[in-house]
Structures are given as structure tokens and as C-alpha cells.
Design a protein around this nucleic acid. Sequence first.
DNA 1: CGGAATCTTGATTACCTTCAAACAGGGTGG
DNA 2: CCACCCTGTTTGAAGGTAATCAAGATTCCG
Lengths: 221, 221
Amino acid sequence: MQTQTTNRTPICHYPHNRAAHAIFGAVELVGVPLSFAKEAEIYGENEPAEYVYKVLTGAVRITRVLQDGRRQIEAFYFPGDVFGLEFGAEHTSSAEAVSSATIALVKRSTLLAAATRDSSLSNQLLTHTARELEQARRHAMLLVKTAQERVASFLIEISKQLVGGSVELPMSRQDIADYLGLTIETVSRTLTQLQKTCTIEFATSRRMILRNKQALISLNS
Amino acid sequence: MQTQTTNRTPICHYPHNRAAHAIFGAVELVGVPLSFAKEAEIYGENEPAEYVYKVLTGAVRITRVLQDGRRQIEAFYFPGDVFGLEFGAEHTSSAEAVSSATIALVKRSTLLAAATRDSSLSNQLLTHTARELEQARRHAMLLVKTAQERVASFLIEISKQLVGGSVELPMSRQDIADYLGLTIETVSRTLTQLQKTCTIEFATSRRMILRNKQALISLNS
DNA sequence: CGGAATCTTGATTACCTTCAAACAGGGTGG
DNA sequence: CCACCCTGTTTGAAGGTAATCAAGATTCCG
């Protein structure tokens, strides 16, 4: 039911991630791709890291929760992206479906074993991890900026991922807030302000049109 | 001169990083270890990433600078730590000596070439990068906390790195502030407050004694 | 149509930054 | 040896930005 609901979201075509594709090309998938309903957990913090995942459709978020319940979203993943590759025995974050999603799996042990035999695969794993590292550091850079700058950076980032004149945001305002280290109110106010300056426009609260990308970039700090 | 000054800092013995050690064991060093004076640049943003570095003595910081001049410190590295391993052609951050430091170098191309032949080395590179990723994500978690929590987390982290009853902080208050995404004044005030509650004590502004580690941990959120 | 969840808006408060000045230590030169 | 300066650190007062608390608007779905 829930899956059907979110399937109404128009399927976007995403620029494919070459390295990610190659990683999954090298070893056989585990069964058929799995479907996850909106908000369903894909794996949890401290669970054994048994699989590596690739988004086929939908969107996924990686989160950590602090002792006091504050939630931090570390990254969003979109079709073509690989996630969940960890090198400790257990996941250090949890993963959930932002919208309903289909996800392909490979066994981590199979992948790592194949990598010891295939130096090109091993190199791809390295490249993938390095790219995640770069992304995490850029995310950290975000978190020391002002609310306006954070929101602007997020919108630029997300509009790169999602092709087209208007952008369907798969995540809620709360998700955006948790990704940017802000409250939902501040995110909402900032978006409203950007609308007033005709930088962006919302057809619905989830469908955004970029009116002045240059203005966003200059806000980006 | 500058080097001599900072050499008076007592040399601490650090828990050695096994993976890092192995990475450097696999290929030959480039010449002799280099000495860097306090504040000297080791490499700059956008410079070609030609070498991989290992701290022998002293401390190093990795920084990025925003357009408006704000500086963000992404990480500190201490003796035994390997840094500067990047997979793009150019460095995405710059590295500087926090205190005077001696640093061993290997050629990146040599290391990566060796990794294609030696799957164990390749695996170590992967482990190293994954560890940096985990560290970057933990750093991002820091940046959404309150000033007290950030400072407490930093002090706990640094006291793990540096063994002994009292901890010699190699970095300035400004460095701490830039690492935590705070101002120098806020860092100073927070440290003063922690002193007043007898959680920590400063013999000098750089030499800290932990009086109540448990209190710090509970502040850590 | 009605109820629930999500999002937006408003008023107030709290925390951190900014601006400014005082303080402390370390080195230099008289 | 002391006066002086330079740098790094601490402290104080005022201001701004985002959080919190609270209510209203909108959208989504049965």
C-alpha cells in the first residue's frame, strides 16, 4: 500500500555512478532486489554488516542517533548509488528508505573476497570509499555555515542529483533539517525566504523549481 | 629556531596505528623524513597529490578554507598516523604542521602500484580510508552539538590520543575553535567553565589535567 | 468530508558570536 | 634585571541567529 502510494512519484533518470556500477557488476546479486516501504529500516546501527546495497529506485538515508534522541542524517543515496559498505564487523549507522525503494544486495564477504583476487575491483572499492570520505567532509563543512548557506548548499546538491527543471524532493522537511543540523522551523522559514526573493518556487511542498540558481550558488558562501 | 623552541615540548609516546604502519612498511620512503616548522604548509589545496605522509613526531592538521576566509579543521594527526592519501589527482584540503613536526613520505604512485600487486596492502589502504571516513562522520556529529558537548568530546578524543595524566595540547585555541566550528572566545569560556567545575585543570594554557573524566563523558551527550 | 500528519508562521528565549579590552607568558633589547 | 612588545588567551557587554514553544494552514488519505 505504502509502496504504491509513493510509486506515484515520477521516476527520475539519474546520472549513473560508474564506480558503483562496476562494484556491483563484479559479483552476483543476492536474490532479487528487495522492496522497502517508506520509512522502513534497511539495516540498523550495530547490526552485523553482512551486505552491500545499491539503490535501484527511490531514496535512502543513513542516520545516527545521539543518546538524547537527536538524529543526524549523514547522507542521502539515490538510484545508482552504493551504500552500506563498511569494514568493521558492524554497521556504525542505520539506513532507512526515505521513499519506497528497491534495492539490490551483494554479500559483503563475497565482494571483499573477490576484491583480493581482482585488483581492479579492489581499486573501485577504494575509490568508492574515498568518494564517501570526500562527501562526509563536505557535509561537515556545511554544518558550520549559517542556516541560509546550509539550505542553499543542500538545494544545489540535491538539484545536481535529480535531473530536470523541477525537482521532486523525496525527503521531508524533518529529513532536510536533520541533514543540515537545523530545526524543521528554520528550514521552513529559510525556504520561504528564498521563495520571497524568487530564488526558488514550490509547486507543492515537495516539488521545487529553481528560479535563480546563480543566487543560490552565491548564498552557498 | 622555531623548531628548537617547540622541541622543548615533551615527546609523548603514542599508541601506534597498526594499519598505518603496515602501509608504510610496504614501499620505500622517499628520502629522509622531512622536518616542518610550526605552522609550515605540508601541502596545499589543489596541489597535485603526489605523496602520502606519516607523522613521526609533532602534530598535523588538515584544513579547508571557505570563500569568506572561515577556516575549518577537518582532522588532527599525531605520531603514527598516515595522512594525505587521496584518490583524485589533487589534494582537496591542505595540511599544515601544528607544532614542529617530522614526517615520512612515500610516493602515492608507488604505493598505489604496489597495491595492485599486493592485495593485503590494498586491503590496508581500504581499511585506512574507511577509518578516516568513520572519523569524518563522527566529526560531523560533533558539529551539531552544543558548545559544551563539542568541547567535552574534543577533550575526550584528544586525551585518548595523548597518553599520560596530563595532556599537552599541541594546538592553539584557534585551532580547537576551527575544529569544533566555534569561536575562540566560546572555546575559552567553555574551558574556563569546565575548570570552575573541577572537571579539568590547566597548569598552563596548553597543559591540561583531566580531573573528572566521567563528567566529561556525560557532557559528551 | 474529516482526521492526521506535515508544513508554515509568529513570539519569545537561549546560546553563541561579535566587538572590545584586559591579562599572561615569552622573548628581546636597553 | 627590568621594561617593553608581541602573541595568545581570557573576560566582559551587547547583539544576532537559530531554537523553542505555540498555534494556524495545508496536504494527504481514508
